[in-house]
């Protein structure tokens, strides 16, 4: 979440709750609702690392609120993040480790592992179908995020089938 918050602060200074709202507004139902506590913890760390700074803004009848803004170092870190390529699909896969190693120990059968995993992925896909139905059709960002997740699940299922053909 560090760089997401930096990116939002690059647009304009904001306090914690505004950042939470901006995240929800941008990514809609497709993004994990950030807990305000997590946001403040992350902001604290960013501040300690010198990437952002806070100023206290006085409010009538309420405690002061902290408004955060990006430092030069923060802007550089953000530019670096935007410029570097992002990690692609994983090579290491926990399920595959299980599939290869568990039968050696005699605690699991490969066919049973694959079958259970397939049903689980289909359950995940069903959740994504529900999610896309409940997502505002105008929120293209959220729809693309969900569609991406669906394509990943489809690829996992196709690969599971390959495992079943070759290993089981």
């Amino acid at each position: 979440m560090r760089l997401t918050l930096l990116a939002l602060l690059a647009k304009e200074p904001a306090h914690g709750y505004e950042l939470k709202q901006a995240l929800e507004h941008t990514f809609g139902s497709a993004y994990p609702s950030p807990n305000i506590g997590q946001i403040y913890v992350t902001l604290g760390r960013l501040e300690k690392d010198g990437l952002i700074r806070a100023i206290d803004v006085e409010q009538s009848n309420r405690p002061n609120k902290k408004v955060y803004y990006l430092t030069v170092t923060g802007r550089e870190a953000l530019a670096e993040w935007a410029d570097e390529p992002t990690e692609g699909p994983r090579i290491r896969d926990e399920f595959f480790m299980k599939l290869v190693l568990a039968p050696l120990t005699g605690i699991a059968d490969r066919m049973a592992l694959i079958n259970r995993q397939r049903r689980h992925y289909l359950g995940v896909m069903r959740d994504l179908n529900d999610l896309i139905e409940r997502t505002d059709p105008d929120n293209r960002v959220a729809l693309l995020l969900i569609e991406g997740a669906m394509l990943h699940v489809q690829a996992d299922l196709d690969w599971l089938q390959r495992c079943q053909e070759d290993l089981a």
Partner: peptide, 17 residues
């Protein structure tokens, strides 16, 4: 096809993993 453990709740803030 089982109901997943992390079945999303209705409304905003649901999780895509």
């Amino acid at each position: 096809i089982p109901v997943t453990r992390r079945r999303p709740k209705a409304g905003a803030g649901d999780v895509v993993e």
